[in-house]
């Protein structure tokens, strides 16, 4: 399969359109992920689909890209990141933005919404709205089906038990048969939008915090650098970038400085000494 011209074309489409590198060791995923697309579009098999891909039918290209993206997520996944957000980033921003009382947060690849809803729960805990703060929480994903799911905010029992403590589950969700629906209050806190990280960032506000976790690893070096640079363009000078803990030691987080004792937390530039003392616990 990997030496087949249509495979090369698929790899090229994924790289060009979504920045995704299709590693040879992951070619086994192609069949599993593309078979639903084969059935949906009525193709005989995967080679037929790949052949048709050459004609650039947009709905098919989009469906293939969506099928090949990884959407695995969980509430409070990698809990340490959320602890850093709650204990380091948020207190510093509350102090730094005390005059405007505005916070703008962007989740770059939100899958079915577990990450932005986890952030919304922490913001809700902090009772910022009660203190007159205006919060903009934007969550994007390249996969429109995932965005639709996130907007609906309904999760299976299996999904909610991954990382969601029982008290948060009961207080923030209502049970609908075997599923759980997030509260309207939390759902209204998040604005969801389908967005490709390779497209223009012009519509985004200047952000105080950007969550870009477990995304960069799917890109090649050039795309990573481009995405990080463009995130840097919309990130406030003292804004925070949160990547996955496993990504924090990688050299590709160029243009950012790793916060002391906080894996995965980066700043555009190292905060001034007096400020750093208040940032690092």
């Amino acid at each position: 399969m990997t030496h087949c011209p249509d495979y090369s074309y698929l790899a090229n489409v994924l790289l060009r359109r979504a920045g995704i590198v299709l590693a040879e060791k992951k070619t086994h995923m192609i069949e599993t992920r593309l078979m639903p697309v084969v059935r949906r579009f009525g193709f005989r098999d995967i080679p037929s689909l790949l052949k048709e891909l050459h004609y650039g039918h947009e709905a098919l290209v989009q469906a293939v890209i969506e099928a090949m993206t990884t959407n695995d997520s969980a509430f409070f996944r990698d809990r340490k990141t959320f602890d850093e957000f709650r204990d380091i980033v948020l207190p510093a921003l509350k102090e730094a933005r005390s005059d405007t009382k505005q916070l703008k947060i962007w989740c770059t690849a939100c899958a079915a919404g577990q990450e932005p809803y986890s952030i919304a729960m922490l913001l809700d805990d902090a009772k910022l709205a009660d203190e007159g703060w205006s919060i903009t929480l934007v969550a994007t994903d390249i996969n429109s089906q995932m965005i639709a799911r996130a907007q609906e905010g309904v999760y299976s029992q299996f999904e909610v038990q991954r990382g969601l403590p029982i008290r948060r589950l009961v207080s923030n969700f209502t049970q609908e048969g075997a599923n759980w629906r997030i509260s309207d209050h939390l759902r209204r806190m998040v604005t969801f939008r389908t967005f490709n990280l390779l497209d223009s960032y012009g519509w985004l506000p200047d952000c105080d915090v950007v969550f870009c976790r477990n995304v960069l690893m799917y890109f090649d070096l050039k795309t990573r650098a481009s995405v990080l640079e463009r995130i840097g363009d919309i990130l406030m000078p003292d804004g925070a970038l949160l990547v996955g803990p496993a990504e924090s030691m990688d050299s590709y987080i160029l243009g950012y400085v790793l916060a002391d004792s906080a894996p995965g937390l980066f700043y555009k530039s190292r905060p001034a000494p007096a400020r750093r003392l208040s940032l690092v616990k």
Binding site: Q157, F158, Q161, P165, I166, L169, V170, Q175
Partner: peptide, 17 residues
């Protein structure tokens, strides 16, 4: 599904599916 609200009130600390 068990009624988790009732379970919390009764004293459950966490749940497992």
């Amino acid at each position: 599904p068990t009624d988790l609200s009732e379970a919390i009130i009764a004293g459950a600390d966490e749940y497992i599916l």
